[in-house]
C-alpha cells in the first residue's frame, strides 16, 4: 500500500495509539480495516482505508496483521513531513516493511517491524438511525473536551433544536459550553450543523472523548452521532479514502 502523503497514515496511527496499543489490521483487495477496543472495553475504534484511496495498492490474499501501534508510531516519527510511504508484507513473512521516500527522491528509509500474534475479538456494530447528528469543527470539539475536563471527568451532552450543550461538574463546581447551530453557513468547515430527530441527553467520560480528539488532525470536521442508551459515535473522515469512527459507551446515573 503506497501513500503519496505518508503523513495521512501517521495521523491515523497518532489518532489510535492512545486508545489501543496494538491492533489487528485486516488487509483485503478492498483496502485496510481495523477494529479494536480499549483495554477497559468502554470504547471501540473502527478504521476503514479503502484501496482506491492509496496511490497504489495490491493485496493478493487477505491478511490479518498484528501490529503494535506504539512501535509503528515511533517508526513513523522518523518520516519527513512530505515523504511518501509504502507499507509491504511479503507472503510468508512475520514482519511488515515500512519504506519512506523523500519528496525529491534523494533519501530512502526502510524499517521492518515484527508482526504480533493477536487474538482479534470482533464486535458487530449495528447500523443505527441516530436521534441526533452534529457536525462541527474538530478543533472546536477538542477545545471543548479540554475545557470540560477542567471541571470534571464526565461531560453531559444535551441537544436541542437551537444547539448543543456540553456541561461538566466536579469538586471545583461546574461549567458548560453551549454551541448555537450556525445559520449563515459561509464555510462549511467552520459551521456547527445539528440534525435532530429528537433531543438527547447523554453522559460520557471526558478522558475518552479527549483521546478520540487525537485523530482531529485527520479532518477539519468531526461528526458526533447520539441516541439515548446508545454509544456515542465520533467520526473523523479520511479524505478520499475512509474514516476513523470511535464509539463510546455512555455513563448512567446509579
Amino acid at each position: 500500500a503506497r501513500l503519496l502523503h505518508g503523513s495521512i497514515f501517521a495521523k491515523v496511527i497518532e489518532g489510535l495509539r492512545e486508545l489501543v496499543n496494538e491492533a489487528t489490521w485486516e488487509c483485503s483487495g478492498n483496502g485496510i480495516t481495523l477494529q479494536a477496543m480499549d483495554s477497559s472495553h468502554v470504547a471501540l475504534v473502527s478504521l476503514v482505508m479503502r484501496s482506491e484511496g492509496f496511490e497504489s495498492y495490491r493485496c493478493d490474499r487477505n491478511m490479518s496483521l498484528g501490529i503494535s501501534l506504539v512501535s509503528m508510531s515511533k517508526v513513523l516519527k522518523t518520516m519527513g513531513k512530505d515523504d511518501s510511504l509504502t507499507i509491504r508484507v511479503n507472503d510468508d513473512s512475520d514482519s511488515i516493511i515500512i519504506a519512506m521516500e523523500s519528496q525529491n527522491q534523494d533519501k530512502f528509509a526502510d524499517y521492518e517491524l515484527r508482526l504480533m500474534d493477536l487474538d482479534s475479538e470482533h464486535l458487530g456494530i449495528p447500523d443505527t438511525d441516530y436521534s441526533c447528528a452534529i457536525k462541527m469543527p474538530s478543533s472546536e470539539f477538542s477545545r471543548i473536551c479540554r475545557d470540560m475536563s477542567i471541571m470534571g471527568d464526565s461531560v453531559l451532552i444535551c441537544t436541542t433544536k437551537e444547539g448543543v450543550k456540553f456541561s461538566a461538574k466536579g469538586d471545583l463546581g461546574q461549567g458548560s459550553i453551549r454551541l448555537v447551530q450556525t445559520t449563515n453557513i459561509e464555510k462549511e468547515e467552520e459551521a456547527v450543523i445539528i440534525e435532530m430527530k429528537e433531543a438527547v441527553a447523554l453522559t460520557f467520560a471526558v478522558r475518552y472523548l479527549s483521546m478520540f480528539c487525537k485523530a482531529a488532525p485527520l479532518s477539519p470536521q468531526v461528526g458526533l452521532s447520539l441516541s439515548e442508551d446508545t454509544p456515542l459515535m465520533c467520526e473523523f473522515k479520511i479524505a478520499e479514502m475512509g474514516h476513523v469512527r470511535f464509539y463510546l459507551a455512555p455513563k448512567i446515573e446509579d
Binding site: 468502554v42 475479538e121 456494530i125 464526565s154 459507551a249 446509579d254
Partner: peptide, 14 residues
Amino acid sequence: MNRQLGISTFFLTL
C-alpha cells in the same frame, strides 16, 4: 455518581 457501561453491552461479540 454515574456508572460507566461497557461497549459490549451494546455491540455483540461476533
